[in-house]
Amino acid sequence: MLDLAGGTTVYLACGATDLRKSYHGLAAIIKLKFKLDPYSRCMFAFCNRRRTSIKILQWDGSGFWILMKRLDRDSFHWPETPDELQKVTLKEMHWLCDGLSLTPKGAFEERHPKIVV
């Protein structure tokens, strides 16, 4: 089953990707271009050139899942650095899918309070 737990590692393929690619094409990009294992339990997210579609690939142990979102108007605030892989949290991935940037204004910064003994 698709793992949407908070501890899931999410990687963004920055820049544009040809989203006509399916399972094998996206897995090849992960393995050959980014030197990562597409069969790990990580999520790998890709965006098209116009920034109107996102595809997410994840292996669940028995097969690949592909999630896709296409916008009717506007565009995603996708990182533009080509040929770069960026590690983000699942929360940040939700922000991108909701039309926000990776650092939305007004969002609380995640932190861990110091324990005073």
Rank of each mutant, 00 (worst) to 15 (best):
L12M: 04
F44N: 00
R41Y: 11
I115G: 08
F46C: 03
P104N: 00
H24E: 02
K55Y: 07
W65M: 00
T8R: 06
T89E: 01
W59P: 04
K21S: 09
K105E: 11
C97I: 11
I56R: 02
F46V: 08
E92A: 06
A5V: 14
I30C: 02
L71N: 04
V116K: 13
V117N: 11
A16M: 04
T17C: 08
T103G: 02
P113Y: 13
D37A: 12
G6D: 08
K91N: 12
A16S: 07
L100I: 11
L2P: 11
R20N: 07
P82H: 13
G6E: 07
P104Y: 01
T8L: 05
E80G: 14
W59G: 00
C14G: 06
F64C: 03
E109V: 12
L2K: 06
C97N: 06
G63D: 07
L36P: 14
A16V: 10
Q58W: 07
L2Q: 05
P113Q: 11
E92N: 03
T89A: 02
K91P: 13
P82F: 14
V10M: 00
A45F: 09
Y11P: 02
L19Y: 07
L90Q: 07
A13Q: 05
A16R: 03
K35Q: 10
A107E: 06
L57D: 01
D72G: 12
A16L: 04
F64P: 06
G99L: 06
Q86V: 14
T17V: 10
C14V: 10
L96V: 09
M1F: 10
T8P: 10
D83T: 11
L2E: 04
E80Q: 14
I29R: 00
A27M: 01
L100H: 12
H112D: 13
T17F: 09
T8M: 05
L32R: 12
I115F: 14
L26I: 01
L4R: 08
P113W: 13
M93P: 15
Y39G: 05
N48L: 08
T89M: 03
F34C: 02
D60C: 00
H77I: 11
T103A: 02
T81H: 10
K35F: 15
P104M: 00
R20M: 04
Q86Y: 10
E92C: 07
L57V: 06
